[in-house]
């Protein structure tokens, strides 16, 4: 079997597995999985920029929040129907990513990390400053009636699970295809050796900007999905912590692999879920995992599997 067929099989196997799990898992875990799939969209968006293009942003929470608030505020104050608000949310994130990209991509390396961190911090403070509309840290709730998508009730366990599943599946397959296109391969080339890519005639700056905009839009879509499915919009999602999470997930699962982000989110969710039963200092686990990963397994779970066992893995 060719590696192309194997990777297709892997991708559809994961999706089929998620459908089956819905019918065999207890309700509690179905709820967790819905959340995991939404956050996996976020992680996949981050992965396109970090894992494939080699750009480490420490401010992705601003894109997640742009999607979330773009969607939430369009419903709350614009009176938009859900599908239109959905588009508004994703476009807000993409536009923000475009502006941030035009500025931040003038820098590289450590400066890029700090600049994105600073922009995200600015965005967080802006959310707090306009507390009259955003309700700041407290956030606001989107009522069940405000969240009907084409007549579908996304507040039931089933509706929520399969909406999350559909959004996840679309992003998962689309991004897996994208990184196999010439465009995706050029992003990898830039990650591997930007100067070389430029001296092969590729406009590295433009490719990085495209990657950032797509990455921001997908992260924003995750924010929209969260607001849609869980009915909550709040400033917590624009804090530094939510910029660190996707980095943690992607590193844990395996940067630059299609399946890594999902694995990372799944592991981390259950790790925190279990540990928060014992202590309120559950972020300690996140810290320990980050340090252990950087020192011992910089390729993450999927990356290590790919290097040691399944070289065909996408």
């Amino acid at each position: 079997m060719t590696s192309f067929n194997k990777s297709n099989l892997l991708h559809f196997g994961v999706l089929a597995g998620l459908v089956i799990l819905f019918f065999i898992l207890p309700t509690y875990h179905v709820g967790v999985l819905s959340r995991v799939m939404v956050m996996a969209i976020y992680a996949m968006g981050f992965n396109l920029l970090f894992g494939y293009t080699g750009l480490l942003s420490l401010g992705h929470a601003m894109f997640f929040a742009a999607g979330m608030y773009g969607f939430g505020l369009a419903i709350k104050f614009g009176g938009f129907p859900v599908p239109a608000a959905f588009v508004v949310g994703v476009l807000s994130a993409a536009l923000l990513a475009l502006v941030v990209g035009l500025l931040a991509l003038r820098t590289a390396g450590v400066a890029f990390m700090i600049v994105t961190l600073m922009f995200a911090q600015t965005a967080y403070l802006v959310v707090l400053y306009f507390g009259k509309y955003t309700r700041g840290d407290e956030g606001f709730i989107l009522q069940q009636a405000e969240r009907s998508l084409f007549g579908l009730d996304v507040t039931t366990e089933t509706g929520r699970y399969f909406t999350a599943f559909t959004l996840f599946a679309v992003c998962f397959i689309a991004l897996a295809k994208l990184v196999q296109t010439p465009f995706g391969k050029r992003l990898v080339a830039i990650r591997e050796n930007e100067e070389r890519a430029r001296m092969l005639g590729y406009d590295a700056g433009r490719y990085k900007l495209y990657a950032l905009v797509i990455s921001g839009a997908v992260s924003g879509l995750a924010g929209v999905s969260y607001a849609l499915l869980f009915g909550y919009v709040g400033a917590t999602f624009s804090t530094v912590q939510y910029s660190i999470f996707p980095l943690l997930w992607v590193l844990l699962g395996g940067a630059g692999t299609t399946i890594g982000p999902f694995i990372g989110v799944l592991f981390m969710f259950y790790l925190i879920d279990i540990s928060s039963g014992y202590t309120n200092a559950y972020m300690l686990i996140a810290g320990v995992v980050l340090v252990l990963l950087t020192v011992f397994a910089p390729k993450g779970i999927a990356g290590t599997l790919k290097a040691r066992v399944f070289p065909w893995m996408p």
Binding site: A189, E192, E195, M199, Y202
Partner: peptide, 23 residues
């Protein structure tokens, strides 16, 4: 810029080997 010159049909090999080492 460099990439536009390359697109015109100019190719350049580096003095210090510069390939995509991971590919």
């Amino acid at each position: 810029p460099a990439h536009s010159r390359i697109q015109l049909g100019l190719a350049y090999t580096f003095q210090i080997t510069s390939v995509f080492r991971g590919l």
